[in-house]
């Protein structure tokens, strides 16, 4: 735990907020263009939280969500995760494919799944390229993977990286919303422990 809290000053928090702002801003613009709707963003929240607290941010461990997850590597290593509540995921698919009657907890068909994964791919690419140009570092993303399940189960995967160094993780969380309240979700950036040291170096916040 000590490993994470060391050296995180208010200046660092501001830098990380700005990273969230620029990354998520770019991703929100990409989403707005994709679905042709206005997307607004809240001010990013930067916090060091316990694993259980992070899961509570998205409605608790059993809340059903769609998660699109990728790892990125380069000058900074870390995780990007988009979390969209289940209900909003259905709305997103309706916007793309037209409205459809569904059962609660329906299975998604392969086209819907690949559409969601592709949206994730585009948004993650936008988020990452904004950070890349900000830090002037080349960041390479993995192919994004999609899971629609309990929030706790989904978040356990990126949090595993933090399990090796403590019982908390540093979360840069930006909430995005569509004007008619159809789409809402979180952009999460969870840099690896070594990752944000490099971020501060690159951005000059010592």
């Amino acid at each position: 735990m000590a490993g994470i809290q060391k050296n995180i000053s208010p200046t660092h928090i501001d830098i990380l907020k700005e990273v969230g702002n620029i990354g998520a801003g770019n991703a929100a613009t990409a989403l707005a263009q994709l679905i042709n709707k206005k997307i607004t963003m809240r001010v990013p929240e930067v916090n060091i939280m316990s694993f259980d607290e992070i899961i509570d941010v998205v409605g608790g461990p059993e809340n059903m969500v769609a998660g699109i997850y990728l790892r990125f590597m380069g000058g900074i290593d870390g995780n990007i995760l988009f979390i969209i509540p289940y209900r909003n995921t259905l709305n997103l698919l309706d916007i793309i494919f037209g409205e459809k009657k569904r059962d609660l907890f329906c299975e998604f068909d392969p086209i819907e799944r690949s559409a969601l994964a592709e949206i994730g791919n585009i948004l993650a690419g936008s988020y990452l390229s904004a950070i890349s140009s900000l830090t002037k570092m080349l960041l390479k993303p993995s192919v994004p993977a999609l899971a629609i399940d309990m929030a706790g189960a989904i978040l356990s995967v990126p949090l595993t990286y933090y399990g090796h160094v403590g019982d908390t993780a540093l979360l840069i969380d930006t909430v995005f919303e569509e004007g008619e309240n159809l789409i809402k979700g979180h952009f999460f950036l969870i840099p690896d422990v070594d990752g944000y040291d490099n971020l501060f170096l690159a951005l000059g916040g010592v």
Partner: peptide
């Protein structure tokens, strides 16, 4: 939880 194509150990956690 995620069907990653890569060989990363963490995905087989």
């Amino acid at each position: 939880m995620f069907d990653f194509k890569g060989k990363s150990d963490i995905m087989k956690i």
